[in-house]
């Protein structure tokens, strides 16, 4: 037969992309054994050197550094630290340096720059309000983003498949789409009964527009022969849309979903700072108003963790949905 350039079926695309895409980074064993001791040293300095002022939780912070140091040593011992070692080392050095500079010698202007233990104190004492803010932000974001994305995909497919819908919807998309959703903030706060609902609508709009445009472009670009193949086997419109157009457009749809997620993050912060009376944006606004800078930093950290986690989840979803593609970006 014609097995001229056969590739074994067992060679999974993910495995091949992992080996060809980037070479594994393997730091020397020396670095791995250094990471833990650096944290232990930082713990010792925090504990023994006297604070310049009456800071809270110095003991707890020292204990945290100590615990992390022990964990790193244990990870090194079982050989699990590997390429993470340099990062762990630098992080320990950084925290130690910050502790010495600010808590022990007060080298930076006070209210704006806190000490590590100030930040730790926020998490230890205000975790309930931070968690509650995170939950509200997540709820607002997820409801707005998911509904906007679903509507965006439906709109995009309809635009790609129907002349009538293109005729009526395209001008509206062209008028409203490029407008930054933030500009609609005052209007939506007037129209909608609650600021929360207004925030959700804006978030849906922010996510929906890029998703709709990219889905549309993806569906328009589907090879017409794909439809012919299915039609000749008796496929109806339903199959052509759901099982041919949609999967064929998936790579493009994900580009839209990523853009939409970024736009939603921006919209979330603005909505919470300007109207919605809950969430991390609101917390940050409040903290800044009371000059509670450590609280602001803490909220910033939580928000950044939330955003990166959601982004990672979207990447995982994409990798799952597009496992048939040859290779893709690793997050």
């Amino acid at each position: 037969m014609s097995n001229s350039q056969t590739i074994p079926a067992s060679a999974s695309p993910t495995a091949s992309s992992a080996t060809t895409g980037h070479l594994a980074f393997a730091p020397a064993v020396f670095w791995q054994w250094l990471a833990g001791p650096v944290w232990l040293l930082a713990a010792l300095v925090t504990w023994k050197l006297p604070d310049r002022d009456d800071f809270p939780d110095t003991g707890q912070f020292a204990f945290l550094l100590f615990a992390v140091g022990l964990c790193l040593l244990a990870l090194t011992a079982i050989g699990r630290l590997r390429e993470r070692a340099p990062w762990a080392l630098v992080l320990g050095l950084g925290l130690g340096a910050w502790e010495v500079m600010q808590a022990k010698f007060l080298l930076l202007p006070r209210p704006f720059f806190g000490t590590p233990q100030d930040l730790l104190d926020v998490f230890l004492t205000d975790w309930k309000r931070l968690g509650d803010s995170l939950l509200h932000s997540l709820l607002l974001l997820v409801i707005g983003y998911v509904s906007g994305s679903v509507l965006g995909i439906i709109t995009g497919v309809a635009l790609g498949r129907s002349h009538h819908i293109r005729y009526w919807v395209r001008p509206i998309m062209r008028l409203i789409g490029p407008l930054p959703p933030v500009a609609l903030l005052p209007l939506t706060f007037v129209i909608f009964p609650s600021t929360r609902l207004a925030g959700e609508v804006l978030m849906a709009l922010a996510a929906g527009f890029p998703v709709a445009v990219l889905t549309w472009s993806g569906v328009s670009a589907v090879d017409h022969a794909y439809y012919d193949v299915a039609r000749t086997m008796g496929a109806g419109d339903r199959f052509l849309v759901l099982r041919v157009a949609l999967p064929a457009a998936t790579p493009q749809i994900f580009v839209g979903l990523f853009m939409g997620l970024g736009a939603s993050f921006a919209m979330l912060v603005v909505a919470e700072m300007l109207g919605v009376k809950s969430g991390l944006g609101f917390y940050m606004q409040w903290a800044q108003g009371w000059a509670a800078y450590p609280n602001m930093y803490a909220a910033l950290i939580v928000m950044s963790l939330m955003c990166t986690t959601l982004m990672t989840l979207l990447f995982k979803l994409r990798d799952h949905c597009l496992k048939w593609q040859k290779n893709g970006l690793k997050w």
Binding site: D223, Y226, D228, T232, M233, G234, P247, A248, W324, Q325
Partner: peptide, 20 residues
């Protein structure tokens, strides 16, 4: 179109998102 008359093109036009 009808499944009793199947057309095959110059390109295989396999769906890349489906396995063989």
């Amino acid at each position: 179109p009808d499944p009793s008359r199947i057309i095959m093109f110059q390109d295989p036009t396999l769906y890349p998102w489906r396995t063989v």
